[in-house]
Design a protein around this nucleic acid. Sequence first.
DNA 1: GGGGTATTTAAGCATTTGCTTAAATACTTA
DNA 2: TAAGTATTTAAGCAAATGCTTAAATACCCC
Lengths: 127, 127
Amino acid sequence: MKQKKQTACIRVFANEKQLNSCKRRMEELRDPLGSVASALNLAGNEVRLKMLFLLKEEGELCPCDLSDILSMSVPAVSQHLRKLKDGDLVTTKKIAQTVFYALTPESEILLQPHFDFFTNQTVKSAL
Amino acid sequence: MKQKKQTACIRVFANEKQLNSCKRRMEELRDPLGSVASALNLAGNEVRLKMLFLLKEEGELCPCDLSDILSMSVPAVSQHLRKLKDGDLVTTKKIAQTVFYALTPESEILLQPHFDFFTNQTVKSAL
DNA sequence: GGGGTATTTAAGCATTTGCTTAAATACTTA
DNA sequence: TAAGTATTTAAGCAAATGCTTAAATACCCC
């Protein structure tokens, strides 16, 4: 709630000094927060979250397996995997012409609570 | 790696039965996984993650405070808040013409590990 | 070398996203 | 009632996204 241009909200940010302090805090967090946002953005696409989950469950999968499971075209799968790889959520291992994708350790840590959440949901609904 | 139309990957999904079993599992998880994806998608936008974090830190804030802190226009802030509210990540309380936004308990649980991650990052880099 | 397989990349398209400006809505006060 | 304040909504625009089809790249085998 703005009173005047010189002061901000009565309730929370009563003066400019407090506002600037808060801004500085956000500036300090800019890079780490940005990298979390980036990872969440990647995981927040339903197709990609499914892929990440399947990679967690199976350990590693190739694009054509993911294509079969998810009933999607191979190029579509590949484009999503490319984003995950560029975002450091997955790693690749090539054997002949087959590429296997797997979660990075970091992405596993980041995503485990969310996988737990929706796998626990299913268990609960079965009870 | 596809061998024939009738069988899938040699390495992981060696037959159609296994593939169908995996597909069924994904279908069971469709709704809970979808709702997690939806929340992550909302949080995965940098502006919105900043808002969610600020709401966690301050407890509640109005659009004009968020506008000041983030140096964004009020309508832009409002549009993001609308998405967060529709996605059940925030709740609203109105006092006169001022609306205060706050995290829902569920979003707090979902996001806390991520907030911890990037606030701990900052602490570590300060040491 | 040719043919086959697996994957990636390119290009095009429709849809979605996030910002801006303007207008509308909801509230308070003189 | 008019003026002021806070917020939401509408509309428009440029950019981004995710899919498709086609082409290119990388590998294997006869």
